[in-house]
Design a binder for these strands. Structure first.
Lengths: 109, 109
DNA sequence: CCGTATCCTTTTCGATACTG
DNA sequence: CAGTATCGAAAAGGATACGG
């Protein structure tokens, strides 16, 4: 049994999937791998996600310490940037492997 | 846009997650990495999954061509073995990476 | 031994309208 | 610009009983 942020997982793979699993989280991380993006830039990169869902998933990723959110309040319009934390950056090789296998699967079926 | 087995995915990571995503599929694959297992052996390895869910997820994995199911009908009691297909074996490095990152995350928080 | 059937709860995701 | 509120649908998963 493995613990992370108060949640328990029966397997080390479950723990990883608890953090990056679901329909959108790997997609978000995939786009943040290259660098910082604003909320609307993420929406543009992932047009099929709704505002609500994007917002929720960003919050989940932030709660797990994988991404960080920086707000620039100096003057409207509001500017919010999302980027990987140092901890989140340790996921980059994994996200790349996930993306690569996806490409491979498309080509080989 | 990427296609696999009739389903469409907006990103190559989504495709991978469509196949190995969810609460249980990586756990099942993790245990099948080492070799063939019978249904009840899988239940023993993953005590927290219910029969119904295990059954459904095995079917999903089989449909996507990742695992194969072999039935020995010669004489009761029934014997059913699950193992990775050749295609499924291409997932092994990825499953290992997922497991390794889970271990890493536990240790570093 | 290896599941399926039934019913139910929880989680996730989507559509749309609206706000500081 | 960057979200939240509300409502609802769908998918995933769980509990338990039963069947070939």
């Amino acid at each position: 049994m493995h613990k992370f942020k108060g949640k328990e997982y029966p397997c080390c793979t479950s723990l990883t999937m608890g953090i990056i699993g679901g329909k959108w989280k790997t997609v978000i991380l995939y786009h943040l791998m290259e660098g910082t993006l604003r909320y609307n830039e993420l929406r543009k990169e992932i047009p099929s996600v709704t505002e609500r869902t994007l917002s929720l998933q960003l919050k989940n990723l932030e709660t797990d310490g994988v991404i960080k959110r920086k707000v620039y309040t100096s003057k409207p319009p509001l500017k919010v940037e999302y980027s990987l934390t140092e901890f989140g950056k340790t996921l980059i090789p994994l996200i790349k492997s996930i993306a690569d296998w996806g490409d491979y699967a498309v080509k080989n079926h």
